[in-house]
Amino acid sequence: MRINGLLFDGQNSRARPAALYRLGEQVILEYDGQSRTFERKDVNVLSRLGSAPRAIEFPGMMRFESSSHDEIDQVFGGLSSFIHKLENNTQLVVISVVTFVAFCVASYLWIIPATSRFVVHKIPQSYIDKIAQKMEGEWGLGESVTLAAENQDKLETITSRLTHSFPGQQVRIRPVEMDGMANAFALPDGSMMVTQPLLELLSTDQALAVMMHEMGHVTYRHGLQAMAGQMIISVLLFFTVGGGDFTAIGQNLVGLSYSRRHEREADLFAAKHLKEIGLKPSLLADGLKRIEKSVSRRREGAGGLPTFMSSHPLTEERAKYLKELD
């Protein structure tokens, strides 16, 4: 059987009409009125790919191109197009789709959370301290602020009660300034930050509840888990879709969903430890509501973002499950 196509001789880009056929272990190539013989083992038949013309490579960078796919398969056997057969086997494609969906679900539910949980407990403290220092610098947290006397008293009470609740742990709370907003958060190294407006706004018990929530982030190392998770996602995306213009969006949405999960975990952690010292979990809900109100009064805050775009669950939702734990 003769296969017709074009030949590029590897010296220049001129396309020459050519034909090719096989005699046992020999491949004969005809072009420009001449006929050349090659050993089959020296001829590389590329696998079929979609509907593109197929290339057959000869020594000396000679390249024969033809769209006669079926003839090429007949002459050279099906081996070269094994992957192409996979791609056109409906069952295998369906199996691949199922594998992929299962892999995505498993990654989201178990692989990423479990791997990041495992990783964060292996990271040495010195490295964590370095990350925390860097974050403090980036967020412009600066020096500790001097608190008004009554706020200072509140903070000392909270610190001593937390130390009492978590005997083995070192409780470090630093008062800082953040655009005059009521806020509290935890850094990866286990230190916590609180602002003066928060201490002013909340009762001692409410502020304690909020700091318990932050203790939850510290205990579970949520900040580091999130970082590790992002890294794992980007590696997985690199291998499955190879990056691209839109992958960052998916990565962010998944990151936000983990963040909401972490908030819930920290809420439940706070609820449990509040109950241990005879306080109601709904104290946390009250504190959160007050903070949200004060923040949204200052600027049209993120309160109105739909859940999937937000890093925290809705405050109403959090209040609901915290009330149920009372």
Partner: peptide, 16 residues
């Protein structure tokens, strides 16, 4: 001259 369906099959087999 590629098309989505063709590339989908190639991509999904790659991923699998």
């Amino acid at each position: 001259r590629g098309n989505g369906k063709e590339y989908f099959k190639i991509w999904i087999v790659n991923v699998g």
